[in-house]
Design a protein around this nucleic acid. Structure first.
Lengths: 220, 220, 220, 220
DNA sequence: AATGAATGAGCTTTCATTCAT
DNA sequence: CATGAATGAAAGCTCATTCAT
């Protein structure tokens, strides 16, 4: 009737389905979303969903993957690794939060959903791990003379946690993107100095001005 | 059969049920846990669950309440509000992470579950909000020379986010409690200082290549 | 607390229970009424209900019996078998409909409930049968020279059906008692003449004036 | 297994289901019939029932609708509105009772069920109301010399009630269709006459001892 | 005499998933 | 390629009923 029986190229169909799936999952959550509902929203039949994605779980995984990729891509596109480190950091944080702000519905919620369902905690954890890694390397690279005790990895964990919390605030509209960005940038600086606070021990110097290998950020 | 058919007073049964429920919810998540499974674990019949808690949702809520209360109680008991701020902070953070460490199975996972269940996001958010509030006040009180624009509330959000992330690391056994505590304490001090411009103290000098724009930390 | 643990004589308790049961059954229907609800309304514990009445079914049966008895008793009390037949009929019909009118909640609804649940169709059918019998005898008695084909029993069935229908109208408040009574009385007269309408055949005379054995009405 | 696993068009399955549902509801009553039982009888799976009818209640409603429609259709088909009133009446009553007789299992019981289920009393009441209306109009039209106070509507209620009672007798096999029809026709004629005062016709003379107060029949 | 505690059994409903066309 | 038709399996919840005290 409404022209739903069109013969579309695979790629288009896939996006159509993922769009519908992302929308439904985001709005109603993983468990509360039925395959029926997704099929209806995508205006295709259920068997198609199964043909393309095999199972609800895999479908959700595909959603997660696509959204994650988009997220990473957009953030990466918004930053210029040739800029001064200061600007780079500012831009990265800004791009990150801006993305969150602009994709409230899809990303953050999907992300939250994934976190809870053991089945996807895996995926999310991996993604987060990569970011933590990246931040860790950033910290390591940015600190000129790291003290032997400085636990950059843990600091990265903390900073990413802080970032998520702030991002969540942004995604609910309870925080201004620019304010949040500024605060995160400040925190990063503090993190760079995150040596043991007991005054003793070697206090590392920090510097973003040297020839930092900025690409490390997106490698791995 | 299994010896659970005794006639127990209400209070006892309640705990028995909550124990089972917390365990199952923690291990398998909210949706993946059936009332049947909980009843079996608690060695009682399903109607009892409904008689005592009314619905699965309410049962989960009761779990959340009890665990949250226990958590708060234990942390509060471990700290002495008459101590010096430095000690107080150390003890609070330590108690917090230690509790997480000792109750890996139950608390953190339950907490994660609740966060993403829409139905309980409410409860969790409220709890977190109260902690953020508290941290915010702590920051305000503890900062010697606050900049006029310092957004203590947002900083509190970030710190609590960092704390959750670190705690999560602890709960999975991937981080040492003491290291984590130390790091969080450092972060708190840094956050407390707000402006590291006073040069003294455990906070190392920073250099981002340009002239140190230390005030940026509390602008935003 | 509220003094519910009184030690009451059996008879009182029984009425208390039946009152509650009748009320609940009437308002909510048999299936929609739970033993819990009845116990709560009666302000006694469920085991008491079972002790006194054995099962929900029996309890409902007891309700039916009591209400039926009350109904019959009151109607019988309202009529005087020594009156002239004309008055007798008028009074009987009147008493019947008046009772219905005054006990809308309890009787008619209970009666309707019973009709549907095979378990009690039995009881109701029996009760109705007795009334039909009675009406049949009344017809037979009132007709001086009954034709051989006159099916008084069937006519009684019809008249009782009409009575129920009219009573139902009264019980919902959609019909005035007196109007309804008058109409039923008229119908009875017509019924008394209910011989085959094909003009041929012996047309029976009717008479209520002779020494009618009025007591037959309530015998059997 | 039983050969019911074919892929059938919607319409066919719908009837198959309704057949099974009507049968089960009629035999066991609404509450005593489980969806499982209906599905088993229809030799399909339970989800189909829900897919097609949404809920048990709606399924019952559908049964009621179909059976009612069939009933009305068949009766209407059996009568010819151009016939003489006398014949028309005879045929209508006859068709009505004949239908009841031939569909004992399905209709009458279903009807009884519906009457007492509160949820469907509505539907039944409406249907009955329409019949009463019709009968009322019939009486009004057919009565040659209506008394001014004649309450045709109430008379219709009574006649329909009588009809239901007689029909019930027929449906249980306790009454012969033709006898029942004859009696109902007689009653109708009596009702139609309203006032038997014209002495002529199939209506026998009446004597209640006092001077015949024939007008009383239509007073009230 | 009276009850709080407990349960077996069953019901309606939903969902992910797969044939047969 | 695409889908309407169909289902196995399970989940949440309720109820009549009974012990143990």
């Amino acid at each position: 009737m409404a022209g739903g029986t069109k013969r579309l190229p695979r790629a288009v169909r896939e996006q159509q389905m993922l769009d519908a799936a992302v929308q439904m999952f985001s709005v109603n959550g993983y468990h509360e979303t039925s395959m029926d509902a997704i099929a209806a929203t995508a205006q295709i039949s259920k068997p198609m969903l199964y043909l393309y994605y095999g199972s609800k779980e895999e479908l959700f995984g595909a959603c997660l993957d696509r959204e994650l990729r988009r997220f990473v891509d957009e953030v990466r596109d918004k930053i210029d690794f040739d800029e001064a480190p200061k600007e780079l950091l500012r831009n990265a944080v800004s791009a990150f939060l801006r993305y969150i702000d602009e994709h409230r519905a899809s990303w953050m919620v999907l992300y939250t959903q994934a976190t809870s369902s053991q089945r996807f905690a895996h995926t999310v954890r991996e993604g987060r791990e990569r970011i933590i890694d990246l931040v860790g390397r950033l910290l390591r690279t940015g600190t000129r003379f790291p003290g032997p005790d400085t636990d950059f990895d843990m600091m990265a964990v903390a900073l990413v946690g802080a970032g998520e919390a702030v991002a969540s605030r942004v995604s609910t509209g309870d925080a201004d993107v620019d304010d949040a960005a500024q605060l995160m940038i400040n925190l990063f600086w503090l993190g760079l100095k995150g040596a043991p606070s007991d005054g003793a021990g070697p206090v590392p110097d920090t510097d973003f001005g040297t020839g930092t290998d900025a690409d490390a950020v997106t490698r791995a």
